[in-house]
């Protein structure tokens, strides 16, 4: 039974919702003051995001992973996501992770869970971008940028091949069928992506050296 016009969903039904719909449901539950309903949505969302949030472990020292991960999840829950697709939600979550990691590196002694994002209620990346922050610089960020560039330099079809074959770990034949290319091409595209990435990082290293 819902409250104030809010229609509660069952746990099973909630578990089938994509991220953007789940967080929209959470916002509705909160507006209606339905603590129990939002609690179920929060649990499903937090559990569902754990793989994505594990990225934090790649960017901060081991002893700070829990603190920064919790700050990311709190920001995701407290912010108002304005998008309407899983892709936008992923991008928005990625921005929050970057911001929280930057907040940590700006002042590791301060508990990052206490750092309020001035635009915490906004999901617009341009507005996020206006906030002062210290980027987590160094080899790690250079490598992230190189991966983005190597991927971004591919056309849509080749990006799909990388998503399916490299990142989703599908067999080459299945990736080929889904992307509409030959199996041999899947291998070639993946190798070109790896070679391009290696070259970008080598060039970057030569420039700095």
């Amino acid at each position: 039974m819902g409250s104030r016009g809010f229609k509660r969903k069952g746990e099973h039904e909630l578990a089938q919702l994509p991220e953007d719909k789940l967080i929209a449901y959470l916002a509705s539950a909160r507006t209606a003051g339905d603590v129990e309903a939002s609690g179920t949505a929060v649990a499903i969302l937090i559990y569902g995001l754990m793989d994505n949030v594990q990225r934090v472990a790649l960017k901060v020292p081991r002893e700070a992973v829990e603190e920064v991960s919790e700050s990311v999840l709190l920001s995701v829950l407290r912010s108002e996501f304005a998008g309407s697709s899983v892709g936008e939600f992923r991008k928005w979550t990625g921005t929050i992770i970057q911001r929280r990691v930057a907040d940590y590196h700006r002042d590791p002694k301060r508990d990052v869970r206490l750092v309020a994002l001035p635009t915490e209620h906004l999901g617009d990346e341009e507005i996020w971008g206006d906030e002062p922050s210290v980027e987590f610089e160094g080899e790690a960020v250079d490598a992230e940028r190189a991966v983005e560039q190597a991927y971004g330099d591919l056309n849509d079809k080749h990006q799909l091949v990388i998503d399916l074959y490299v990142f989703a770990d599908l067999p080459a034949r299945e990736a080929a069928e889904q992307a509409g290319v030959s199996e041999a091409n899947v291998h070639k595209i993946a190798q070109r992506f790896r070679d391009h990435l290696d070259k970008l990082l080598k060039d970057d290293s030569d420039t700095q050296g």
Binding site: Y47, G48, D51
Partner: peptide, 29 residues
């Protein structure tokens, strides 16, 4: 650094974990 960036790219694309109430409780979350 390259491995970190590649794992980061993989995790950023990873689908939501399928809801598992028992695993959630066991996770300490």
């Amino acid at each position: 650094a390259k491995l970190a960036a590649l794992i980061d790219a993989y995790l950023s694309r990873a689908p939501m974990r399928e809801w598992d109430p028992d695993a959630f409780r066991a996770s300490g979350l």
